[in-house]
Design a protein around this nucleic acid. Structure first.
Lengths: 208, 208
DNA sequence: GGCTAATCCAAGTAGTTGCTCGGATTACTC
DNA sequence: GAGTAATCCGAGCAACTACTTGGATTAGCC
């Protein structure tokens, strides 16, 4: 049992070398990916993971030093998936008329995250060491990068005195609102209204 | 072991009737309050709690149906404490000059939450059923109530078309920023800058 | 003091957890 | 196809978990 949130000791793992073992590896990670939303973090045990993967527990410990290492791997793939889908949708945002770019941008992020709702929820509310995971920490930078591009499209001319603090605040506003819409979803109507208002507000913010 | 986040079955408990048992009850809750930040949610066991409280485990189960019930009690007291301290500081905010009220208001909330940093962190990032707890759910309403008063002081005249969505957004901005400052604290300088910018932004928002 | 009920506790139990061991099986390599 | 290393698994263990039981102790009350 992990008593404190430190996951440093067990974060990485040993990689498979042959094809057969790569399948085992993948099966384990996917089993864990499915188990986490179903049974929660505490309820997802290494025995369960191995069982669902159709593999013996000992094989699990062949490739992962412990439960946390698989969970970390699940997180890594989750982040990859989400960022890839966002990147994939980005061209359509950039191609849109300038005054709707922000709105589309927000909708894109919202939809992408919503698709992974349950898994995201587990990592946010249950896994004790989520924000110590490297891939998670890297998200904000990647997202910022994307956002800059959208902003250059929607903001027209670029303001010079866009301070770090202001940028930080803006990101907080967007991410917390989207997260709330995804994780604690209000009814459809007010969710749309909320996201619409958010887009309006953000447009004002970056243009002012 | 709790496999899913449902805590409904065990949320409440049996209340003590005599003075002696009330002390046991309190000792248990306080022990849990201390243990949660130290060992995390999963690492805090009923045996530990009883031991630290200087009480037998059986006594624990005399008053609580299970671990979750004590944790819920800890949450309830935490919320009470935080709201009481905020209420206590409110008069000073209201007495301040109008153009600094928002800033003081934000500082008050920030300081109050920061004081309970570690415990808040556990409830936010580890306890799987935090946002299903009644006291937690009641926070936003209470805080909104407080905010209305501050706003009437800082906003001068009250705008009529202050939509629900806009209000929601504003609250998200404030709470998520404060939470970030508390839980993932940047250095002192940028934290001050961030909160100052937040105050400025909020003032504009409610005045516009 | 004596009676009753509340309160406490020593000593467990049954179940689960993360994890390991030794050997069997499979796949590359020549 | 023999040799060798990678891979897998049956079986299980020690530790720990939440939780009980039956009896001892204490407090309230007449």
């Amino acid at each position: 049992m992990r008593t404190t949130g430190q996951a440093f000791d067990l974060a990485p793992k040993k990689r498979p070398a042959q094809e057969r073992s790569r399948q085992t590896f993948d099966a384990l990670v996917e089993a864990c990916t499915g188990l986490l939303p179903e049974r929660g973090y505490a309820g997802t045990t290494t025995n369960h993971i191995a069982e669902r993967a159709g593999v013996n527990v000992a094989s699990l410990y062949e490739y992962f030093p412990g439960k946390d290492a698989i969970v970390a791997q699940v997180a890594e793939r989750l982040v990859e998936r989400v960022l890839a889908r966002i990147a994939e949708g980005l061209p359509r945002v950039m191609a849109a008329p300038a005054d709707g770019a922000v709105r589309l941008w927000i909708a894109l992020i919202h939809q992408t995250v919503a698709r992974e709702r349950d898994l995201v929820s587990v990592f946010l509310y249950q896994v004790p060491y989520t924000n110590q995971l490297e891939p998670i920490r890297a998200i904000s930078a990647r997202l910022l990068e994307f956002s800059q591009r959208v902003r250059s499209r929607a903001g027209g001319f670029v303001r010079r005195d866009f301070s770090d603090a202001s940028m930080h605040l803006l990101i907080n506003l967007v991410s917390s609102t989207i997260m709330q819409c995804v994780l604690d979803p209000p009814d459809d109507v007010s969710r749309r209204a909320l996201l619409a208002e958010l887009a309006r507000r953000v447009e004002d913010w970056i243009r002012e």
